[in-house]
Design a binder for these strands. Structure first.
Lengths: 135, 135
DNA sequence: CATTAAGTTGCAATGAGATTGCGTTTTTAT
DNA sequence: ATAAAAACGCAATCTCATTGCAACTTAATG
């Protein structure tokens, strides 16, 4: 538990009981989780508190959010050296079979040469298909 | 107007009055439009009808939809040779300044080599930054 | 240790966008 | 001309995101 506390403090997030539980829950996930996913891993938890906890984590660089086209924002813990912001991020993969969304941190997004006048700031690459577990 | 009718018929969409108006409106746009954008280009139009028209157009390959992170789905007419589905698509660009979303049909998404077992079906690449008009 | 300020949580409520049900109208086919 | 099929318009619903506010907890200060 000390490790979790340290992680929060390193990111300037106060280690409250709730936040420790959320952080622990996030570490147990193999795929990115939606707010609803997260809510269901707790017996009793307020959706809004979880929502704000995730927002805080995101602001402080503990997690990043992913739009996978399902409509629900997914969240995943940042790995060591996760380049969430403001630069390009890693690739995300959405499995059409199990509907899980994965970070592929090893893969960097290839840079694209934009037309004259377009200045890139941030790039998101989402690949959809069949994941390793389902194929 | 004949051209518009032909375009609809070529895509096996019945050329109703409403659909012709929507198609014409879409052709007048320089950027992708949301449902709300589209609604505002008409004096009087039912949101649901426009929604279903866009869905139909999308199903028949006349338009493709874009998730640009704003929360509202954007729609854009497919260009000649637009590879909406099921293969990789072209790049989309969201301008942080004017909030417009553009198709960059000339740019093909570079293929990424996924880890063992991951099978790609569809790829979406969204670049955010400053567009040519705003820079 | 007591007090106060700041930050956090829980509950209710709201907002935006997407989507469906269904009766009416329009179009197509016979 | 008429029946069947498709499209439309209106109301309603659903999901997810987000805010307001009061109660509670934590941190800091005297």
């Amino acid at each position: 538990m000390k490790k979790l506390e340290n992680k929060l403090e390193q990111n300037k997030v106060r280690p409250t009981a709730m936040r420790l539980l959320v952080l622990k829950a996030l570490q147990n996930q193999k795929a990115a989780v939606s707010l609803q996913d997260l809510e269901m891993t707790f017996e009793k938890a307020d959706r809004v508190t979880l929502y704000r906890t995730l927002k805080t984590f995101q602001d402080k660089g503990l997690v990043h959010s992913i739009e996978d086209g399902t409509g629900a924002t997914k969240y995943a813990l940042c790995q060591d050296g996760c380049e969430c912001a403001p630069e390009d991020m890693h690739v995300h993969f959405f499995c059409n079979s199990c509907n899980d969304t994965f970070c592929l941190p090893k893969l960097k997004i290839p840079s694209v040469s934009l037309p004259q006048g377009f200045i890139p700031v941030e790039t998101n690459l989402l690949v959809k298909g069949i994941c390793a577990n389902c194929s």
